[in-house]
Simulated assay, not measured.
Amino acid sequence: MEKTLMQKIEIFSMNFDFTSAEQKAILQYLQANNYKLTAYKGATGPNQVSSGVPTWFSVSYVEIFGELEIDYEPKYKVYVFNQTNINVNTRILMQAISDETPLGTGLTFNPDGTFHRNSGAPEGVINVINNRPAGTPPVTIGLAAKVNGKFLPFCAFICAPQESVSMKPNEKIVLLASQNNMTSGTVAGNMTGPGCSFTFSAQNMRYDLEMIPENYGIQNVPGTIPVDSVASGASLVQLLNIS
């Protein structure tokens, strides 16, 4: 019971403060040049899409001023998309979505688009059986994680009918400021600008971040929990430990 209660209140946060003169000047440039703050989150498991990673969330800098706090809760839903040709710039749609599903849960996806619980899954994993009839096309199955109150997709796996996928989310996060048109669910293969990566944990639940004036990358505020710098062009698949 104690573990369950802790999970209910566990919130991780990513924070920016654009109130200083330097950060405000950077924000003005990012707004004028149509930048977005774009995020990616990791997961592991067989049959994961190899072309890239679905964009988890994307926030236009035009919408940002003052202090920005992005809250992430490690809560998940399963989604299904009826296409499997997932290339860079494909936008994955959550055409069917389950109720909130704890890690260690097994689900069956039914032909009518509904889900029901089955015998379970290993700790830290959500397992989904595709119960569509043999001979029907494969589908894309993935997880959506809760950020700022919304469940948004962050990983994608290909699953044939009468087979299953095992999805294990990890807490590796990648952030960057980007001029592309990525929205939640749009697949990206590489970093389109410099950014940062970090890993949430019980010890590191809050990251205080700031923009870098020279290249519009992202770093930690001096004196706070450090993050790793990521260069433009780096592979998101490799950064997020996908296997």
Rank of each mutant, 00 (worst) to 15 (best):
L5C: 09
P54A: 11
S164M: 13
S184Q: 04
S197W: 07
M94D: 07
M205I: 08
T199I: 13
E69Q: 13
F154E: 11
K77C: 07
N148K: 10
A39P: 03
F154H: 15
G195H: 06
P213G: 11
E10T: 15
G223W: 05
A231G: 01
A134S: 12
T140K: 08
N215E: 14
L68R: 13
N33Q: 12
E210T: 13
G185Y: 00
V221C: 01
Q179C: 02
Y76E: 07
E2T: 09
N204F: 15
V78W: 11
V62W: 00
T38I: 12
F109E: 00
Q238D: 15
P74E: 13
M6H: 11
K146F: 10
G149M: 02
Q28N: 15
Y29T: 05
P111N: 00
P194C: 11
H116D: 06
S164A: 13
F57G: 02
G233A: 10
I242W: 03
L93S: 14
V147N: 03
F115N: 07
Q95S: 15
S201T: 08
E69H: 07
L236Y: 14
N47P: 11
M205T: 08
V187Q: 02
A21W: 05
S51P: 06
S51A: 15
W56H: 10
P46Y: 14
T183H: 02
T90H: 15
F65I: 10
S164C: 04
I126G: 02
A160D: 12
N130E: 09
N215I: 07
T114S: 15
P111R: 03
A188H: 09
N15G: 05
P138M: 08
N181D: 14
K3E: 14
G106L: 11
L143K: 01
L68I: 05
H116P: 00
K24T: 10
Y35K: 00
E73Q: 15
L107V: 08
F81K: 01
K146Y: 08
F115C: 03
Q95T: 13
R132H: 10
N215W: 06
G104R: 02
P222L: 04
Q219P: 01
T224I: 01
Y207I: 03
G42T: 08
G104W: 06
S197E: 12
V62T: 06
C159P: 05
T108R: 10
S232V: 14
R132D: 09
F16Q: 06
I26S: 05
M182Q: 03
F16N: 06
I97T: 13
M94E: 14
